[in-house]
Design a protein around this nucleic acid. Structure first.
Lengths: 297, 297
DNA sequence: AAGTTATTATGCAGAGTATGCATAAAGAGG
DNA sequence: CCTCTTTATGCATACTCTGCATAATAACTT
């Protein structure tokens, strides 16, 4: 039984001609040629443009390039997930988690969300947009993202359920050895910070809520930009500048005294940790994990 | 060539047993039974639970119920779209459009976005969340939604491109015959309005931007709630209360004098009309439509 | 324009698959 | 333990797919 006819179409899109595609699919050219022909009959769709010689994909096929690839990818993923669930005997559960949440709370989440002996949690770290996409595309069962408390929460999508499962504060920190120096310079009207790119959530948060008031009273220079809060933490610890990082992430270093919290001077951002899932799901593993998340965290 | 093996799985999920599922798929029970068996071998996944007698779907299969159905649906849709494109010779293009935008600007969009002789536009009307979902799931090539000007635009998702293609104002209106009465009551401290459900965009907009200041100075009673701005328009015209509707929608009635604009008294909401598409697309019809949208509207 | 090369299609035989029918095997329920 | 319902298997038949060899066709060369 052949279940991978979509792959034939993708091969066609990937290659410059039938013979080429046949090679990709590991069959002889005549066999592949006929396969496409019968597919054309079965689907009722012209798949290749025979008017030219290295005959490329037809217009119809090319127009659906993205959709076909997506479908093929989803199919592969779904099957491999099912196989894994089958062989391991463990339920699979994908949780999409914003990078900063993964780093600061990853193990806590994995431990609290399910019994390891019965469910295998795959924590998929991504930026906030991607988390939402993963959820909507059903490539993740649950998404965990930050939401800034002072921002008006846009009404939740009607097909999603959400719950606040915790709180977090973005605090400005720097290496304790350099704290005095940085503060002094700040009062002189100059502040060096470790920034986040404007197109990631933390960057946008910083730009909207923290920097405007600071920039009103001193000149801010962004020493480095990194998308990762762990990297920002490292850099700030070495004295490069102030970085805003999740409190949970800075906690160990703060307790040890290596790091200094400048929140009183520079301001913090209060955030909720929001969990989301599809309103309609009957997957037991998901529902179980959800109730644990809402209850325990 | 069999391309519909996913449908076998769905049939299995839909039915109470193999024989039942066989009937759904229009084959004899023995044939279907063997089909499932070979599928189990090919996929390497146990599909049915044989320990009980009307043997139901296995745990693994049931856990993936939603995903399988989604995949099956997507596949059906994609193929039928391709067939249609093939037979009509017209490129298909799905544009997701927020209900209120569809009603107020539908024809304008369809006319300006593509040449009818070469592209077939399907305007898919949905609420705002659904528009976004359709876009992200690639079930729509372009989405058109409102965005309230005074709200901080959350940073756009990095994988999407967006453009403001127009403006719109949500204005409070009522039937001209009842305007004086309503205004008088308003000054007496009572206002009757046609509301939108809080979980749709217009409802949220109303609740956040319009009603708070009004409620501070008078008591607001929501006479009726409807999710459709056209319905709201009708109801307000009949004197039931004030409704906030897109200016373009009210325009004809306002010009005719049947409707009165109460914007000066009750306040309006300024909105942008935002078009979005995936950043990565090579679909010519989409790119063409996009440039027309951005240029002409 | 004719010949050469690259690419795709087709004839054919053999191997492999799928199906329906009849019937056996296996749970479920009494 | 027997009956009923449901699923699996044996078998013959029809169909499908593949590789090989080779024909047909488009593109390129001289």
């Amino acid at each position: 039984m052949r279940i991978d006819w979509i792959e034939d179409l993708v091969a066609l899109l990937d290659s410059g001609g039938v013979a080429d595609a046949a090679r990709l699919r590991n069959v002889t050219q005549p066999a592949f040629s006929r396969r496409i022909k019968t597919l054309e009959e079965v689907l009722g769709i012209e798949l290749i443009d025979r008017s030219v010689k290295p005959s490329g994909p037809s217009t119809v096929l090319r127009d659906r390039d993205a959709e076909l690839r997506k479908l093929a990818a989803e199919q592969r993923l779904l099957l491999s997930d099912m196989r894994q669930e089958q062989s391991s005997g463990l339920r699979q559960l994908v949780i999409a988690s914003q990078h900063a949440i993964t780093t600061s709370m990853g193990t806590q989440i994995i431990n609290s969300v399910a019994e390891p002996s019965r469910t295998h949690i795959r924590l998929r770290s991504a930026n906030r947009d991607e988390c939402e996409t993963l959820l909507i595309r059903r490539q993740a069962a649950i998404s965990l993202t930050y939401r800034i408390k002072s921002e008006p929460a846009s009404e939740p999508a009607s097909f999603l359920i959400e719950a606040v499962i915790g709180e977090e504060t973005l605090i400005p920190v720097c290496g304790s050895a350099h704290a005095a120096d940085l503060i002094a310079r700040f009062h002189d009207g100059a502040l060096r910070i470790i920034g986040y790119p404007a197109d990631v959530f933390l960057g946008a948060a910083l730009n909207r809520h923290i920097l405007p008031p600071i920039e009103a009273q001193c000149s801010v220079s962004v020493v480095t930009e990194t998308g990762l809060s762990t990297a920002a933490l490292q850099l700030s610890q070495s004295g490069l500048g102030v970085a805003w990082v999740p409190a949970a992430l800075a906690q160990p270093d703060l307790a040890r005294g290596d790091l200094t919290n400048l929140g009183d001077t520079l301001g913090c951002i209060e955030m909720d940790i929001v969990a989301q899932r599809w309103a309609t799901t009957s997957n037991l593993a998901t529902l179980d994990a959800w109730s644990r998340l809402v209850r325990e965290m």
